[in-house]
Each structure stands twice: as structure tokens, then as C-alpha cells.
Design a protein around this nucleic acid. Structure first.
Lengths: 371, 371
DNA sequence: CTGAAAGCGCTAACAT
DNA sequence: ATGTTAGCGCTTTCAG
């Protein structure tokens, strides 16, 4: 009966192969899942042959359910259209592919509701772990924490999850901010404007902190009117917004009593906006005003003038994040104990936390002049 | 025994809830999967409450196996670092999320082996369909065809799969090529160079065809030395390569006896390379030489000068592709027949093929001068 | 070296 | 309205 229903229209299963070869599903499974389990050469051959004939291809879902193990990981980012993320994602995927993992890509648009939904779905889909970049500042921290309790492996990019230790790969924004500012100073600039989109994220605040610090270290007063912060824009994080904001901040800057000789933009997109507005207003970059960016997105070397900027290793970030995730699979963690008791509050050693902070470096191109 | 093993360390299942509420798994399933099946309000409440207490969250894998239905789709593209694709992927995901689907992202790097492996894996992971953009020209056509036979739904972007009818969303490259060229002509240009990366893809050949056609239509001779094709570079498709190629082609162009007044680049990245090389060589764009691109990637409006180009609606492409995929789920298709006989060769009506060809449009910015 | 059988978590007839 | 039961496709003891 059940036999009849098979081979009707459905894909072949190990059951079909067992039937056809006069063996058992156990044996078929053993050869087809390349378990290394000893099977007589003859039988193996026959099974392999029949599998081919029947166009057999394993159903991973069955295996997943049985082994309670998955080869998928979730990747949650604000939006892939922000040119920083494609490189990150590529870095993750290059590593993941090599290790036999697949990526479920999720764009949260920094909307906490969307993000939460994604986390939930990923969890239900039994992903083995997730790499998340929009975390922090947005209220899903407790939720993530819960998920981690329940066994989900989490690696964050650029943000700590408050309260729990989960791996993270970060970037030294403050140092980056200092490097950029110090370079400007070393080129003879004293009056430097910092332009940024709203300071809703720690990374931006840190970068600004670096700017301040560098000025202070060099005995330059950090005047508040030299820090131009974009309006809170509820539109989702997009390249277009950063660009527009750059233009807007330049317009604001142009009204300053004392015009700066250099602009430090919180990211490359903003820098591009600034340059365009400057050019439109008849200024030469860097002839009249210098501009330095932050991120070193791929196009920053392709624009005119090529942008001097601070390199943030996006691809490396992705690779590292996946590497850390992989390592975390090794740890016993919340769900791994033999006895099954949940670790209670002695969770200090629960996750071996290996945070990695990537270092910024300066990329000198042609958008900054020596004065 | 089996009861004991539960609650050990594992996540709660409907079985646990049934146990705890003194009901059956059937009932629990009915309420927790919001099946709409009638359940006494009291029981429902109790189950919901217990589910919360036990921190229950459904295991989609179990459901998938049972229902033989998945909510994942695969997306295969050359590389997300090519700035055309993030928009496509975003378009796909925006639609997909709304319909409750998730995206497995795969970067093939145009390597047929990688691509094949991905297709295979996706199939085994029981994705409901795939959207593929690197298809064509690379030898995986028969394989894809087989997969389609076996019930995989496939939508291609920009390329037919020879031999089978599967949905595709394409773009009228030839028309785009004509539009660009005609615009140049209308601006007074007669001597126009077409620069391109290797003609390994139909899209590039079509664009060139459009260029030729437009010249012909306007009684301008299409001289072969005005068509500059990059060396076959076996490096994978990257933005950097296109950019470098643009520079290289300009260097070649600069050696031409009769210098053109305008350059038509096969894509925006190539155009950016061309502009940079031109500027480096002391030319003004568009003062001395005009440049027109193709694609209208997001940054093309942010560079200096803002690039005049042909708009290819990447986001729309993604949205449409997912829409078509969704529609294809409705069709009975290869696996849907009640009787299970495979349709043999009367596969004409097997898939209702709804190809969509998107139309190009001109985006005039500032990289082309009227002469 | 092989097979029988249990069962991963869930749903859906088919009773009742 | 609820429970029983039979699997979905696969792996893995446990016995031979």
C-alpha cells in the first residue's frame, strides 16, 4: 500500500532503493551518506547504481530532523544595499561554502520588528547560528539573549549584546577617527569639520570621539559648531540617505562663519555627498577644501578625486565572523551539557568569548591636500 | 523512557505540551499551527499558556518533512560585490519576506562547478524554487533542466535556459545599447568608441549590437577599431575588474589615430574606470571627451561628474523575479500530476512561460557634452 | 557485513 | 471537539 504510493510521483527515497536492491534502508543509508561504515563492495556498487538510475538525491530535511543538526546559518544585516555589507556577506559566504554551510540572508532595514521576526524564523528553521550586524541600540537585545539561552549561537558584528557574552567582531572606530583626524592635522589642517548622520549608533559616536580626541591631543579646540549632525531621518538606512546627508551637511557648513579647510565624513557615502555638493558650489576638492572618508568601500577608489579614507576590512570582518561562529559550534554551550541542567547563573565560562577588534588603517588617495 | 529523554536538555515539542496539558499532540498541533481547526476555547488557552511556559517554539523542520513543503528559495548570483546585484537581491527579499519566504544566498563567482554544487545543495535542501542569474553561457543548462524536470521551480534573470521553458525576467540590452548610442549621436557625436569586458555574455553582445544598430540607423560607419574588447580575464567577475578594464580600454583608445569624442561603456563600473583614466591623462569629462555608462548603479549619481547612463531596474528585476517564482508555485508543473506520469515530450504546456523583458531608459546627468 | 525497528517533530486522516 | 495513529525521509542503536 505504502509501496504503491511511492514511485507514483515522488522523488526516490532510500526506501525505494532498498526495495529495488533487496537490501535495507539501513544499508542504503550507510553507503549513500558516505558514513564510512563498512558495506560489502558488491552491495555498495549495486546501491550506487540503483541510486543513479532512480535519480536519487538525498532529502536533507529528513537528515536534519533525525540528526537534529543543520548546515544553515542566518545572516542579519541592515541592508545589502549599503555598500559596506556586500563585502561582509561575501566574506561570510566564502568561508561558509568551504565548510559546507549555507547562508540565509536577512535585511532588517534596522526595523526592530522585522529583525525580531527574522531571528525568530531563523531559530525555528533550526539554523545552527546567526551572524547579526544590526544588533544593539534597537531593543532586541533581551530577545537575542533568550535565543542564546536556548542554544542559538550568535556572533555580532560591531555591537555587543548587553548582558551576555557572545562572540563579536568589532572595529576600533575611535582609533579610526583619530587616524583620519591626525592625518588631516599632519597635512596642516586646523579647522576641520566632522559631518555625520544621526548619532544613533555607537560606531558613529566612537568615530566622533576619535575626532575629538585627536584634536585635543594636538592642542586644537574642538568647537561644537564644527560638528554637524544630520537630522534624525526615520527612513531606513540607505546609501542614498547617507549621500544626501553629506550634501546637506556641506550646505550647513557653507554657512559657518569660519569655513574649514577640511571635512571628515563619518563614512564614504557621506563623503561622496559632501564632495558633490562642494563641486556643485564651485569648490575644488581638494584644492579648496579637503575631504576624508571612512570605510573604504570599493567605489571610493573609483571616484574623482579618489577618496582618502580609513580602511575598514569588510571582507575580513565577514570571514572572521564566520570563523568565530564555527568555533562556537564546538563549545558545549547552553544546550550541550550531558546532564542537561541549564547552567544557571554560573554562565561565566559558558561561552568562551573571543572578541576580535579589527584595526583601522589609513588609505591615502587624492581627496586631501597638504596646506 | 522516551519521556525521560525529553525535557532533559531538548527544546520543548508539542509532545511535551500535550503531556503537560493532558491533551494530544493532534490538538496541540491544531492550536499551535493556527490551523483554524476548531478547539475548545478552554483547551486552547491552556495549551497556549503551557507553550509559553515551556518556551515552546515550533520546529519548522518537522513541519517541512511532514508537509513536504518549504518556505525557502535559493538565489544564485555571480557575486554580491557587483553593485548591480545588491538591489536585485533586495528586491527579491522585500517581496519574499512579505510572502513568508526566506532567501538562501549563493555567490557562484560564475564558476560552473560552484554553481552546480549550489544548485544541487539547494535542491536537496528542498527549496521551493530558485532564482538564478549566472545561468547561460556556462554549461549548467542541462543540469538545471534536469532539476526542473524533478520539480524545481526556476526563474532566470537575463538568460534563457536553452531547451526548457522556465520563467525569466530579462532586459532589452540591445535597445539599451541603441538608446545610449542614439543619445550620443543626438548630442553631436559621430566618432564613438564602445568599450567592453570580454564578450562572454549575451548581454554584452546585445548591448554592442544596439550600438552598431544605432550607428547604422544614423548612417554612421561602425568601424571595428572603435570597438575595444577587454582581454579574457579568468579572474572572477568583480567590480574591480570591470573598473580596471575601463582604464585599460581607455589607454588603448588613446592610441587610436582618430580619437573619439565620446565613449560608450558596457557598464557603469567600466565607465568609472574610463573616466578615471581620462582624468589622469589630463582630459576633462565631458569637456574633452564624453562618457556614457550602462546599468545605473546607485553610485553612478554620486560620482563626479554624475554619470549619464542607461537605467536597468535592478530592484524591479528582483521583485518581478520573485513574483514570477511565486506564480510558478501555482502551476501543476512536472511533479504535480495526480497520476504521476511524467509529461513526456508534450511539455509545451508544462510551464506557462511568462517572460518579462524590462525596458531600458536613459538617465541624463553630466558626463556627456553637446558638441 | 546486514537488517529490523525506533524515532527526530510535526500534521492529517480517520475515528470517536 | 478531541484523540489515535500513521507516516514524511533519514540515521542509528541493537541483534544477528
Amino acid at each position: 500500500m505504502t509501496d504503491e504510493r511511492r514511485r507514483k510521483n515522488k522523488k526516490a527515497t532510500i526506501y525505494d532503493i532498498a526495495k529495488k536492491t533487496g537490501t535495507s534502508t539501513a544499508t542504503v543509508s550507510r553507503v549513500l551518506s558516505s558514513s564510512g561504515y563498512p558495506v560489502k563492495e558488491e552491495t555498495r556498487k549495486k546501491i550506487l547504481k540503483t541510486a543513479k538510475e532512480l535519480n536519487y538525491t538525498p532529502n536533507i530535511i529528513g537528515r536534519m530532523l533525525k540528526k537534529n543538526d543543520s548546515r544553515d546559518i542566518g545572516v542579519i544585516i541592515p541592508t545589502i544595499s549599503n555598500p559596506f555589507y556586500p563585502q561582509v556577506v561575501l566574506g561570510i559566504e566564502m568561508e561558509a561554502r568551504q565548510k559546507g554551510y549555507n547562508i540565509l540572508l536577512c535585511n532588517s532595514l534596522r526595523d526592530p520588528a522585522i529583525e525580531k521576526k527574522y531571528i525568530e524564523t531563523l531559530y525555528q528553521k533550526q539554523v545552527k547560528g546567526i551572524i547579526i550586524s544590526s544588533a544593539g541600540d534597537n531593543g532586541n537585545d533581551e530577545f537575542l539573549q533568550e535565543m542564546q539561552w536556548m542554544g542559538l549561537r550568535i556572533i555580532t558584528i560591531d555591537h555587543d549584546i548587553k548582558g551576555i557574552g557572545c562572540g563579536m567582531v568589532g572595529f576600533d572606530y575611535k582609533k579610526g577617527g583619530m587616524i583620519a583626524t591626525e592625518y588631516l592635522i599632519s597635512c596642516g589642517h586646523r579647522n576641520i569639520t566632522f559631518i555625520t548622520s544621526p548619532l544613533t549608533r555607537a560606531s558613529r559616536r566612537d568615530t566622533m570621539e576619535g575626532y575629538r580626541q585627536a584634536l585635543m591631543n594636538n592642542g586644537i579646540e574642538a568647537r561644537e559648531e564644527n560638528i554637524l549632525v544630520g537630522e534624525r531621518e526615520e527612513e531606513y538606512e540607505s546609501a542614498a540617505y547617507e549621500f544626501e546627508n553629506g550634501k546637506m551637511m556641506v550646505r550647513k557648513m557653507l554657512q559657518l562663519d569660519e569655513k574649514p579647510s577640511a571635512i571628515f565624513a563619518v563614512n564614504d557615502m557621506t563623503a561622496l555627498g559632501a564632495i558633490q555638493e562642494l563641486v556643485n558650489s564651485g569648490f575644488d576638492v581638494p584644492g579648496d577644501i579637503s575631504v576624508i572618508g571612512f570605510d573604504n568601500i570599493e567605489v571610493s577608489s573609483m571616484v574623482n578625486p579618489p577618496l582618502t579614507t580609513v580602511h575598514q576590512p569588510a571582507f575580513e570582518t565577514g570571514k572572521l565572523a564566520f570563523g568565530m561562529l564555527l568555533e562556537s559550534f564546538e563549545d558545549p554551550g547552553a544546550n550541550g551539557g550531558e546532564d542537561g541542567h541549564t547552567w544557571g547563573d554560573n554562565n561565566k565560562n559558558r561561552n568562551i568569548i573571543r572578541n576580535t577588534i579589527l584595526e583601522p588603517s589609513l588609505v591615502i588617495r587624492k581627496s586631501v591636500a597638504v596646506i
